[in-house]
């Protein structure tokens, strides 16, 4: 509204932009924008990351043929993250002029929210121990998620600590951090989900060769783009500069921009096998059985693709969702709908 209707919600009095006085009346506060924006946007990023974490948990349980480690911890941690995500937003604004006291408050809540995140990642990693790991495409993506999201999360710690954030705020380090969590985190998990559930959607499997090309290409180029940003930021390279070479300390790290750019083009190219694979397999993929991954959960108990209403008759659930490798049974999985 400030731009279109010349209101002054965020424009302070007598502000002059590019030599011209602002057309509105003034009297607003830029800080208001920051608080309103981040009050939304911080919970938003947890909306972006929690469902992919769930997908990874599902795929890991399936492809290690054993129940998840610390299932209850996982669930309570996810709930804890959801609740805490509402009281951390001002860690995006540590240098906006807040008092140190308020900064301390958000520092503490941000450190608290990192605990359940680490708990979730730890449970997922421990779930691998003793498992009979099948290295198919969904599992590859789920495995890649673990260290890469770990990097994203750990690089968030200096940003959550007020003192180090003073240096790192608005540098390339921030860009590296949030892209690691969302791109190498959420998006990789979403790819895992697509490869995992595609047989359910279309009754056909996606092509493995193209999938592996997509996987290796995507993971390496993603790191190629955002890895350099982490140390560019540590060198002090600021964000949103029209001419970064104007700052002397940026010059030594400018070369890494080239690496990022080439990686970005390569990442785009590596998505082509995926797109082709997706649409080609919809019509001409190798036909598959109802439960190709030998999974236990309900969605695998209906035909692929599911008909209208999903199930031929209402399923009866006999046990929990992660009954893999139950001792004494012939099969290494026991579907929820299978009677005892």
């Amino acid at each position: 509204m400030d731009r279109v209707f010349h209101t002054s919600f965020y424009m302070p009095k007598d502000i002059v932009i590019l030599g011209q006085a602002y057309a509105g009346s003034g009297g607003g506060q830029p800080l208001l924008w920051q608080h309103l924006f981040w009050f939304l946007a911080h919970p938003e990023v947890y909306v972006l990351v929690l469902p992919p974490m769930g997908i990874v948990a599902e795929i890991i349980a399936n492809n290690t043929r054993k129940p998840l480690h610390g299932y209850k911890t996982l669930v309570y941690s996810m709930m804890g993250i959801g609740i805490m995500s509402f009281v951390v937003w001002a860690h995006h604004m540590f240098i906006s002029g807040m008092s140190a006291a308020l900064g301390n408050f958000f520092l503490v809540t941000t450190m608290i929210i990192s605990v359940p995140s680490v708990a979730i990642l730890t449970c997922l990693i421990f779930s691998l121990k003793g498992g009979s790991i099948r290295y198919n495409l969904p599992m590859a993506y789920a495995l890649a998620f673990l260290p890469l999201f770990g990097i994203g999360g750990l690089t968030g710690l200096p940003l959550g600590l007020t003192v180090t954030d003073i240096y790192l705020h608005d540098t390339y380090y921030v860009i590296g951090h949030f892209h690691f969590v969302v791109v190498t985190g959420s998006i990789i998990a979403l790819f895992a989900g697509v490869y995992h559930w595609f047989p359910k959607w279309y009754g056909r499997k996606m092509n493995d060769t193209l999938g592996w090309i997509h996987f290796w290409g995507t993971v390496t180029t993603m790191c190629g783009i955002f890895g350099p940003m982490l140390f560019m930021g540590l060198a002090g390279a600021s964000r949103r500069l029209y001419d970064p070479t104007a700052q002397f300390h940026n010059l030594p790290v400018q070369g890494w921009n080239v690496v990022s750019t080439y990686s970005a083009y390569a990442l785009a190219l590596f998505q082509l096998p995926f797109v082709y694979n997706f649409f080609h397999s919809m019509w001409r993929g190798e036909k598959t059985v109802e439960n190709p991954w030998q999974a236990t959960t309900l969605e695998w108990a209906c035909p692929s693709p599911p008909p209208h209403g999903n199930f031929e008759k209402t399923p009866t659930v006999h046990r929990g969702p992660y009954e893999y490798s139950v001792p004494g049974r012939k099969n290494d999985f026991w579907m929820q709908t299978e009677p005892s």
């Binding site: 509204m1 010349h6 009297g27």
Partner: peptide, 9 residues
């Protein structure tokens, strides 16, 4: 209008 002052905005 809304542009007149913050109050009206």
């Amino acid at each position: 209008g809304p542009h007149t002052s913050v109050f009206y905005a």
